[in-house]
Design a protein around this nucleic acid. Sequence first.
RNA 1: GGCCCCAUCGUCUAGGUAGGCCUAGGACACCGGGUUUUCAACCCGGCAACAGGGGUUCGAAUCCCCUUGGGGCUACCA
Length: 543
Amino acid sequence: MIVTRFAPSPTGYLHVGGARTALFNWLIARHSGGKFILRIEDTDTKRNTPTAAQQVMDDLRWLGIDWDEGPQIGGENGPYYQSQRLEIYKTYIDKLISEGKAYYCFDTSEQLAQARKKAEAEKQNFVYRRPEVLPTESDVKKAISDGKSVTIRFAIPQDAPIIVEDIIRGTVTFDPAQLSDFIICKSDGFPTYHFAVVVDDELMAVTHVCRGQEHLMNTPCHQALQKALGFRIPAYAHMSVTVSDTGGKLSKRERPKVLKTAIKAKNEIDLQKLANAGGISIDELNQFLKGKIVPDMPAIDAMADFIEVKLPEINVVDFRKSGYLPETMVNFLAMLGWNPGGEKEIMTTTELIECFDPNRLTKSNSLFDRKKLISFNTEHIKTVSKEKLLIHFKDYLNVIGSAVSAADDELLSRLLRINEGARTLEQIEQKCRFIFFENDNVEYDLKAVKKVLLKADGLDMLEIVGQRLTAIEELSEKNIENMLRNLAEEKQVGLGKVAQPLRVAICGNTVSPPIFDSVSILGKDNTLKRVEFTLKKFREQTG
RNA sequence: GGCCCCAUCGUCUAGGUAGGCCUAGGACACCGGGUUUUCAACCCGGCAACAGGGGUUCGAAUCCCCUUGGGGCUACCA
């Protein structure tokens, strides 16, 4: 049976790159009817955040990536938090020590830094090699009592080249002389990633490891360890990296970077208010602007909202908040560095599972193209079932805290129907907000008002439209349409000339769902009140 | 610096493992036109690539070498 896993370290939100890794592993497992495991690699006590694991799992669930073993559901190979597996690692480390395959070290970080500097000066790669005489038990006891920090390193066998058979890259050969005796146990007693990953993949019977290309250089180290421990060597696939269309690696640092530039570009900005909005001190804000510190994501998001800047989406949750469908994300991420071979690229998750084949993974890096993502989203909004779309829309409204969430399912479904062709859920929400405005508190877009109402005879036309509307008994779409079309014909103008003033009057904007639906949804009372209010407000202004 | 990976339209890619079917296909973006009550959506058309240089071969996008360019790693992070 094929067993894959996704092993995030809980340091923050799930990043799209991480989601892609999870997805490929999940697809490999689901395609073959195998097993997909979720494991939390929390061996770095300094960088872990308490809520991150939960957030990562929420994001995976949103994407529809479920796991057969792992946190929240358990399994026969638990626990699934590495911090709860310390005794297991210790057993294997002791074994390596007793067999002379690993050894204690007492180097200080200063000593190591110096050695690296020396290597650099000699234009050499820094390689840590075991000393001639290995420390004894009593050396260790003495070091501990002296308060020295003690680490354990694995002695990389130097006898033969290490050959990695990679599904994507083919055969890659490494010279062990280039490989350091890496640390397997840190001075705080926690294993390093390199050690924990090898032990857990063996114990959890993982057969296929699909991970980022950045791990390719680690693989010979892992294989040497597997050999020393008598473990199997799983199949490896080192995927290409996803790079950003804003330049450089697609990284979580992008959002703060964009925000910083945006703040600096706005000269008239109240820094104190901005800091308040982000829930940070003015001091922290200044430090941030100087590039000294980076506030946490909620603060970054809040400040971006405050100055009305749209930050590039990086984390899965960012895309969720921008109105993308999980189906879109799964489809798009799958097509980054993989394709089914034909000309089809819009695919459902089920279709993806059916034809997924890791042998078709691409070797070269790919750029994350947001324009293409939007077009995928447009396609998926068009093709998902009405029921699913409604669920996604409700989730979206909920996640962003929209006033539109006050609508019932029937209205929501209607809003989705009349917004056919929308590119994102965000777009739909923005076009429908007007329904929930107070009649005397419509948010007018000044450009729209100027162009449609104040120019030509916009207000006069609106007045006539208002009168005709009053005269209609029942504001059905059909009645509204007939009235507007007749009026346009009567006045010898296009429909736009009569419809646009009405549109701006009821939603403050030139962009809304089709006007007949918009009016009928608003209802006669609200519509007439808004028309009246608009006439009054802008008649006064123009004198 | 060292080690490793990669290289087809602006972007994602098909084709490369069995060299001729490739005057290199699709999608997104872009440009032009159409449709239209706004924004979208939709329809039609167009632009656009085998990084460079050497080989091998009757024949190379496809195989080999070099150059150049990009990326990764080089932590008591994962």
